[in-house]
């Protein structure tokens, strides 16, 4: 075992390091950088880096879930189903983080943690949709059947979530021009200072989510191997 004592190279080290660097940068520059002065929002606009990014990471993870579902249906490789499962789990964690942080912000800014806001409804709907996905997974014990049914459901689920959070908010604004267009999210006219933090923050948080997911996938592969050998 000469390798054991030597320095261990991590698989795909670069993007993991990038994730940490970007997150350190986000926390430093996010609190110290300048932001435009806006009514109602004021300094809370900074939660663009710590709240909206949760939502972005969730979307990327759930999109990967749907893509792994499609790839599973075309290949039948059960490892892809494992990946899809873990992507959905991490997506849920980031979705819950997005929901909780949104409630903190809404409580300070609008005076109530739960308000009628299309974004908030969208996140709650996505969480429920994927909760149903996990109910389906838990209802089936046979692994190849579970993979197939879950893949079909996840593709349907992702499209429905996309319609709910991307298409319907636009429709509701057109129905109620006065009530829609809440003062918060639509007025982020990202100036160049904020963009310099926002885009790195999105990439950093998303890579962190991918890292969490990758570790879980590798742990579960080892668990499967142990089960096979036992």
């Amino acid at each position: 075992m000469s390798q054991g004592s030597s320095f261990v190279f991590f698989r795909g080290f670069a993007w993991k390091a990038l994730s940490l660097i970007l997150l350190f940068y986000t926390f430093y520059q996010g609190f110290n950088g300048t932001v435009p002065e806006m009514p109602i929002l004021h300094q809370t606009i900074r939660n663009l880096y710590f709240h909206v990014t949760m939502w972005m990471a969730m979307l990327v993870l759930l999109l990967s879930n749907a893509i792994y579902g499609i790839r599973f249906l075309s290949s039948g490789n059960l490892d892809l189903d494992l990946k899809a499962d873990e992507c959905a789990k991490s997506g849920m964690i980031f979705g819950i983080a997005g929901l909780v942080t949104g409630m903190i912000w809404a409580n300070y800014t609008w005076g109530a943690p739960w308000v009628n806001d299309p974004q908030l409804n969208g996140t709650a709907a996505s969480l429920l949709i994927y909760a149903a996905y996990f109910v389906l997974r838990n209802a089936i014990s046979e692994s190849s059947k579970r993979a197939k049914l879950a893949a079909v459901y996840s593709i349907f689920a992702f499209v429905m979530m996309f319609v709910f959070i991307m298409v319907i908010p636009k429709l509701s604004d057109s129905l109620h021009p006065g009530k829609g267009g809440n003062p918060g999210f639509n007025k982020y006219d990202l100036d160049s200072n904020m963009r310099m933090v926002f885009y790195p923050a999105v990439i950093g948080w998303t890579l962190l989510g991918a890292w969490f997911t990758e570790l879980r996938i590798r742990i579960r592969r080892i668990e499967q191997k142990i089960e096979l050998n036992a």
Binding site: V135, I140, K145, A157, M160
Partner: peptide
């Protein structure tokens, strides 16, 4: 999935949100 009608509600309602 050998489920019953209540599983149909659990799986169907979230997809019907939009």
């Amino acid at each position: 999935a050998y489920g019953n009608a209540s599983l149909a509600a659990v799986l169907g309602f979230p997809l019907l949100f939009p």
